[in-house]
Amino acid sequence: MIRSGNVLDFVVMIGLMIAIYLMMSRAEKKMPKLRRIPALDALEEAVGRAAETGRPILFTQGSGGTGTLSHPEEGPQIMSGLNVLSHLAALAANLGPRIICCVGQSDSLIPTTEIVREAYIAQGMPEAFREDDIRFLGSGNAYAFAAVDIIRTEEVAAAFFIGPFYNESLTFVFHSDDVGAMKIGGTAFTHQMPFFAAVCDYFMIGEEIYAAGAYLSGEAEELGSVVGEDFAKGFSIILIILAVAAASFGLSGFLNFMRI
């Protein structure tokens, strides 16, 4: 009935910690204190700069193919990117610059279009929304170089790269740099992190992109789940230290208990 060998206990324990903090924040309505995430704080600056220069901003989530939203690693990153896009589109609607979205995953075209449209409607600027600025560019290298063409021809003032990126990441940031754009990146793929870290003005590492939605919403309940997540990380660190110590000193009882 129940499959053995899976890490259910660990996932449930971490999930419970996060859920408890989320509930506590809901009950107390107390605003948890989080450290600043510079990349998210810079959103307004980037959009403001684009408004001042009269140039558009670019948002993209990396290449992919069919079914990326249901992909276990890419899907959550795309969802997190869409959360950031929602705030970004609201800022763009308020301050005025065009927002161009380059879509590399067919299944995220409709959510992207609707999120931007809703943001413009919510800000009372439905007439400023341009459906032509939400562009599906195919996938892989075709997408990458079509996006590069948009970066260069439109001379974007700010470029946001948040999601599951592959080899296109460096190409994007260098071409954005060439046109003098402010570059904000974020991915949970370890193979692309060094490239973003090297060239972007601001960069979100791994879990920061998952916390972005909660951070930008500023709501106590959502921030509570981020605090719970931090406790889960602390718990993981303690477990790792205990397991390393047990393995070093040959404490088989603890290792058996941990199924290591």
Binding site: I18, L22, A188, E207, G228, S236
Partner: peptide
């Protein structure tokens, strides 16, 4: 590991 914790939190939210 921290990304996995972030993903669990995202799923819960």
């Amino acid at each position: 590991i921290t990304s996995a914790c972030g993903m669990i939190a995202l799923g819960l939210r």
